[in-house]
Design a protein around this nucleic acid. Structure first.
Lengths: 200, 200
DNA sequence: AATCAGACTCAGAAATTCTAATCCTGGAGG
DNA sequence: CCTCCAGGATTAGAATTTCTGAGTCTGATT
């Protein structure tokens, strides 16, 4: 049936790099080093015999081929994800257990996230904690706290403090690398964004 | 974007095995040993947490999950192939150089394959030879000859001898493993089938 | 001019995948 | 009933692929 295909690993590297236009960011999403992404993309380009990126001193651009390839590859990964979730709902559909430190909770609306309907499909329960290690121990999937860091190999998303528009004090959303872009995290972050910056 | 996906290798193994309902045949298509396919499929099932095959003493059956997964995965690989060919036409679109041994040529219509329009997009040239080694040396992509074998790791498709309906003497289509199912081979085989068994 | 961010390279380490040999099961045939 | 056979499972070790980590290079920024 299929005769020759590029390897999935290199396609994932390409897809992430093309989406971010950065090997470094892609590497962080994939949980590997930038060198690995660079090598995978180079391997892909070699196997296709076509350049996909134009390397500029600061950042990347897609070539024409890369431009037409990206949306189709992204689509393929989406289809694959959908098909996989259909038969194995647990693989990506698991609800998150969310850690929330008291200080952060005080900055958020009363009862968040329980009363946000949009989060029901994604959040199983909320635990009051500020211990980052519980992410590594898989006791919680993500943690919202006010300060701290650095968090080593964990992914970090910063959110402006809703009561401190100066931007000095921040809310931190922390999770395992590679989980920052999953549906659950996105839903939570979108909801927080809505809470914090209504209408923006 | 994508959070967790099964590995492409295991998906390829699944797709081929599900299509053939045989690890052995799938292994031959993929150019690996049956054990490798078995391992990949097992890994996939483990990572999904879902059984895809029911192992019967003689052959395989798909489970419900496998049944719904297969068409979607096949589709994904088709899309991937199409997208890849769009930007790198050479990867699968290369025209074949076809070896044809004199004895076999005598059994086929005068001038075959040159005068078959359907083969023009797939066949670059025809070389008179019966040397199987030229496939391994990449001098030709496939070879049609009357007898011989075994051909070791090369793929073999048998075609009935058009002038010997008893079936004892056969025409052999030989190519590298993994090339038997590509478009070019399929086109050639389809055309030979038409030549040999008109109307069937 | 110095600094910096990001991509590249390369050798060695780590992980994955494949092979090859052997085992196991159930059906077919004598 | 017994033997043979086909095909899948299993395993250790080999082969291959992929990743890391350190260092280099380039052009933009200060």
């Amino acid at each position: 049936m299929t005769y020759r295909l590029p390897s999935l690993n290199s396609l994932r590297a390409f897809e992430a790099a093309a989406r971010h236009l950065s090997f470094k960011t892609a590497a962080s999403e994939l949980g590997v080093t930038p060198g690995a992404v660079s090598q995978q993309v180079k391997k892909l380009e070699a196997s296709l015999g076509v350049a996909l990126f134009r390397r500029l001193p600061h950042g990347l651009l897609l070539t024409g081929a890369g431009e037409t390839y990206l949306p189709r590859i992204s689509r393929v990964f989406e289809d694959l994800t959908d098909a996989t979730e259909e038969i194995a709902p647990d693989i990506n559909g698991r609800k998150f257990t969310l850690g929330l430190c008291p200080k952060a909770a005080a900055l958020l609306p009363e009862g968040w996230p329980a009363q946000r309907d949009a989060l029901h499909p994604h959040v199983r329960q909320t635990i009051e904690t500020s211990d980052v290690e519980r992410i590594r121990r898989d006791e919680i999937d993500c943690l919202i706290r006010t300060g701290g860091g650095p968090y080593g190999d964990l992914a970090l998303v910063e959110l402006p403090n809703p009561t401190d528009r100066s931007g000095r004090s921040k809310l931190h959303f922390i999770c395992k690398n590679g989980l920052a872009d999953c549906r659950q995290s996105k839903a939570i972050l979108a909801d927080l964004g809505a809470v914090i910056l209504p209408g923006s």
